[in-house]
Write a protein that binds this DNA or RNA. Sequence first.
DNA 1: CTGAAAGCGCTTACAG
DNA 2: CTGAAAGCGCTTACAG
Lengths: 335, 335
Amino acid sequence: MAVSIKDIAERLNVSTATVSLTLSGQGDLRKVSKKTQQRVLACARELRYQPNVLARSLNKGYSENLGLIVPDITDSFFSQLADQIELEAEKRNYTLMMCCSHNDYRREERMIGLLQQKRVDGLLIAPLRRPDDGPYQNLADGFPAVAFDQLQPQWKGNSVVSNDRKTSGEIVERMVRRGARRIALLCIDAERYSIRERVRGYREALEAAGIAACEELYAELSIDSYRCDLPQVLDRILAVRPRVDAFFFTTHLLAEELVHYMQERGVRLPDDCQLACFHGNMLLRSLFPSITIVQMPIEEIARESVRLICDQIEYRKKGIPAPPAEHLILDCIFE
Amino acid sequence: MAVSIKDIAERLNVSTATVSLTLSGQGDLRKVSKKTQQRVLACARELRYQPNVLARSLNKGYSENLGLIVPDITDSFFSQLADQIELEAEKRNYTLMMCCSHNDYRREERMIGLLQQKRVDGLLIAPLRRPDDGPYQNLADGFPAVAFDQLQPQWKGNSVVSNDRKTSGEIVERMVRRGARRIALLCIDAERYSIRERVRGYREALEAAGIAACEELYAELSIDSYRCDLPQVLDRILAVRPRVDAFFFTTHLLAEELVHYMQERGVRLPDDCQLACFHGNMLLRSLFPSITIVQMPIEEIARESVRLICDQIEYRKKGIPAPPAEHLILDCIFE
DNA sequence: CTGAAAGCGCTTACAG
DNA sequence: CTGAAAGCGCTTACAG
């Protein structure tokens, strides 16, 4: 069996309180003699004492673990976010319990319950769109939670999102400035908040530029079937006249799938055709040197989300009611 | 405060033992009357009772959490692996605590200690190369652990790796069959076991094909600086005569960086130049339609790793000494 | 300066 | 069939 505080106490003929106090650094504060402290520390080292954090957590009511739920960790956007969140959490001495909702909101709801059962101190979640618009049933009232990336109407807590509408408008402006008039917009999961905002930004910018939106140049795809549906959609859009002269993808996933389409079909885009997407990678840039890639403010999202969750946890520890929820809107980065 | 087993017991005028027994499903076994069981269940539901798993874990000595340490979650190989591991772990009722070692073995060592402190039941780890070849100091003796992806000489537990040597040989054979004679090999982190094996497979296959290995066509890069070093290396290799006619990258990261190089430098590869790499994605395939991509057996690695760790945990629970460590070698998949 | 004791919320022999 | 009690390994008033 592992060595416990009791083993040390017995060996040294002191009480477990003394051991606990000095080990937790309260020795001086609580006036444990220097000598005793040294003996305790030495003995702990000698026996390779590892505190049982479960016992501590049970006693204190805090686990120093944070739950993280993302739709899909294999999406580079979320893996980069998870990476940064882990780093930020670590700075504040939290360990992450990570779960993927796999774009299934029933599963997401389950994960919310699971992580609370596991006694995480707070929950960071990139929420899915919920078909029912119902409340988060498994999220206990007042439980520290921060939503990032997406805003859900039924989410009442803190949130950190990017400035989708504005950025989307700027993308369109830029395309228009470069001569585009027939700008196609393709999106996945159009009912999600951030996507709706991107669509809105697109429409507003078109209008501002005096260009009538053309419904034939607009398509919504589903996250579950976009790979299989995209080819027909592209066939259709490419056949529209006057001809499309720019593609705006609300997500890198679609831009990547475009590459696949072009290769499969042996299709080339018109030479003057502009491209843009949210969140990209080096390969996309290499394939389409002139593509406009808007990077999400990943580090900032991570930093602010962790900050907000930690603040909430602190309030909770102190028994102070948390201040009203914050809604941060962060700017994207034009590459 | 959350509702506890005691609250239910008091409300129903039964003992906490009775409540605990029926709630944990041992009601029938331990002969709690049906009536009492129903009352307990109803009351638990009514009060929305959530068991405190910390208390249970403290008592039982098992947390039903698994630790996962990967070098870099933003590498698609590891994010796909993490995704599958989570799925497999979930099937067996384990939740993951994920940490990234960020290619820093001091950090890895810290994470090993941290996760054990957090009382995970076992550790899944894609180990880093360790400059010192020293033992894993923070890994407690006999602690359930499985290494995957990489084998380290000082790792004494179970491991799951892919068949790197054989696969590497097959890649070279295939290139030779297609006419290559001047096959360059570029690798990152050449001291790592799997990379050494890939190099070995490459050399063996060259020899078997009667081709003398040319050291000028071989390069080792570091994980920390490969991005910045690759261009010169490629410049150099492309200048070698007789001319290189195939590039074999031990990792997709290098193949991706090649794209960057070509675009930056405005260089095109010779038309007949063959390419191959371990672990790839759709974009690479689109960029280089004829590239040979060898996919890692990700699902299998995940499945077997989780199986092994769970077996070990079971042995530990039963107090049976674990059988000798298994070393699984799984085949890669030619795409 | 130090110790005895209660408590965090469970589980599990043990006794009846 | 059910309860009283000990214990998992800590922390923290409280008393001396």
